[in-house]
Design a protein around this nucleic acid. Structure first.
Lengths: 244, 244
DNA sequence: AAGTGGTCTAGACCACCAA
DNA sequence: TGGTGGTCTAGACCACTTA
């Protein structure tokens, strides 16, 4: 751990430690939910002082890669329903309440990826995809129609899952069954006119304004894991974005 | 700084330090752009170790309340155009480019606040407001029509500003002329049908889908400073939200 | 050269948790 | 009771800025 060469790769020691730890997350040396070795253990193993390990873990905690529990230890973050609701779902009811909508899967199918799908998922021209269509409802009232697209190669067998068996919080499934961990996402949001499909599933006239959320979900290596387009009714809900 | 009473107000020392420092920002003991005393100075003044001051400043840096510059010192954050663009403006062009649109002020008027305005700005029933309407354009093409509402009491004289003199990045004006500092904002986003006013200013048919951004801007004491509703064309732009 | 923040270390003590 | 993370301290050295 003592490379004191004046290379162009200047990196503070604690960042090098962080890189090592993140590498171990990426390679599933430690999996979601696992307990990491204690800070003094890691410090000794890596040949640095405990304070340096601590600073690395501080940053990883800030990025939600790990969670600390006083008196117990440091755990690899996992996609709990709470995390799904508060980190990866930004729709709230007009009164400010937040809840995960129920989900009804319409279809899960494998197909050759179209150009946009291959571009967004960084697939070769022969790349296959799995598409999931579902409707999500608040209190039985349909509010979101969405299509999820993933690489068929990375998620081999997902298309054979019984539709009822898909958990509402699908990222947990990615973790447990496919060893794929979503750490970050980008959402591009537009107002568009509902097309006939949106209209049908959301029970609104075609042409009504709906909120389109175009999301890319990324993994540890900043690789795109999932592309998802959601069409949301925002008559009794809104999308909340907090700045700073 | 040594209250070692087992009161219910348990707060780590570094957080107490942070509170003191934040108080000084709130009361304009230090103003935007000011240079803070060095870490050892603050440590001595407050009777704590430098590391404790550092941890307090770490958190304040993470919250964008202060900015550190190695070799120079720690400065109170100010609303630079860069900050406006990258922290308080989330609209991007479809190709991912980001630029502040030009702004044309339509009107600045004082009036009695209506119910919603008084509610959002926490004003008494007799509260007066100042309303600013403007259109913002990318490359000369109108894309955003917005109305900004602030308390007339807090912003006395704002309504007499010549419309041309309003800077595009209005939060800087709040700081410099009214000693009001915006530190945080919440945006509630919906897709709605353009009304006749939107249609007129955005040069689109009434009923077209537009993105409504309903924003509350908060100050140091978590007090609401500004209410702003923007109607945005999202045919060549989108709203970017980054998760985690 | 002097002063600032940035990094790294080492150790003490506390609060929390599980056995 | 022993182990964990959480806090606080004290000091050394480095990198950057300004003069």
């Amino acid at each position: 751990m003592n490379d004191s060469q004046p290379s162009p790769n200047f990196q503070p020691l604690y960042r090098q430690v962080k890189q090592v730890l993140m590498q171990r997350l990426a390679t599933h040396h430690w999996k979601p939910g696992d307990l990491l070795p204690s800070e003094p253990c890691l410090a000794e193993e890596l040949g640095v002082s405990p304070g340096t390990v601590r600073k690395a873990l501080d940053e990883m905690t800030a990025q939600n890669l790990v969670v600390r529990r006083q008196g117990k230890g440091t755990y690899v973050t996992t996609h709990s329903p709470h995390r799904a609701l508060f980190h990866f779902f930004h729709i709230e009811r007009d009164d400010g309440a937040r809840e995960l909508p129920d989900s009804t899967v319409l279809s899960i199918r494998q197909a050759a990826g179209n150009r946009n799908e291959r571009k967004n998922l960084a697939l070769p021209s022969s790349g296959k995809v799995i598409r999931i269509k579902r409707v999500r409802a608040f209190d039985g009232i349909p509010a979101i129609f969405e299509e999820i697209v993933v690489s068929a190669k990375r998620f081999t067998g997902l298309d054979k899952y019984p539709a009822d068996d898909l958990p509402n919080t699908i990222y947990r499934l990615y973790e447990e069954k496919f060893r794929v961990v979503v750490t970050r996402a980008e959402e591009r949001i537009r107002a568009i006119a509902a097309d006939r499909t949106d209209a049908k599933y959301l029970n609104i006239p075609a042409g009504s304004p709906v909120l389109e959320i175009d999301r890319l979900a990324f993994g540890h290596e900043n690789d795109v894991i999932e592309w998802r387009v959601s069409r949301c009714l925002t008559t009794e809900h809104y999308y909340l974005s907090e700045l700073d």
